[in-house]
Amino acid sequence: MTDVSPEIRARAELAEYLVRTGDEDRAAFRELYLRTNAKLFGIVLRICGEREAAADVLHDVYLTIWKRAGAYEPSRASPITWLATIARNRAIDWRRAQKIRVATPLEDAPDVADSAPLASDAMLAEESRHGIQVCLDELEPNQRDSIRTAFFQGVTYAELAERVGVPLGTMKSWVRRGLARLKECLER
């Protein structure tokens, strides 16, 4: 292992900082923050829609990370996925508590085709024979856009239907057919 790629090293270091955070190591926690705050704030900001609220949610996200880091198991999940899941769930909780409807069009979701994977998470792509990005590209545009918006903006069926201006049943039908095809592709 003299020739470890920078991606694998970055992931290993992040896992190390997270494990040390679990041992209540403040210096490691600070380093973890420096390396991950832009990713996690990006997630929280998109779902919350406003910077001030997003900063409050980010504060809660890192408190949660501090409290739960002792339970992080490096063999089970990539550190960034573990952290990002906490950020997304916290932001969605906040959003649902506000009952806000942010009027953002579907196309605002990040473009799948143009985005290169982040170095620290590139390994994840190997974990599925058919990555979800490839499989999303095989869907009808209305299915793909709706599923991506649900993921990146944390919205429900009702909000999706409202944004696109279609009946709720139509939106459910699009998304359900899309998810069924996605599943087929992912399991292929």
Binding site: N37, F41, T85, L118, E127
Partner: peptide, 17 residues
């Protein structure tokens, strides 16, 4: 979880940590 790769980053406001 694979989709987190695509999420655009945004520097957090100063002072959060």
């Amino acid at each position: 979880g694979q989709l987190f790769d695509l999420w655009p980053e945004a520097a957090a406001p100063a002072g959060v940590f």
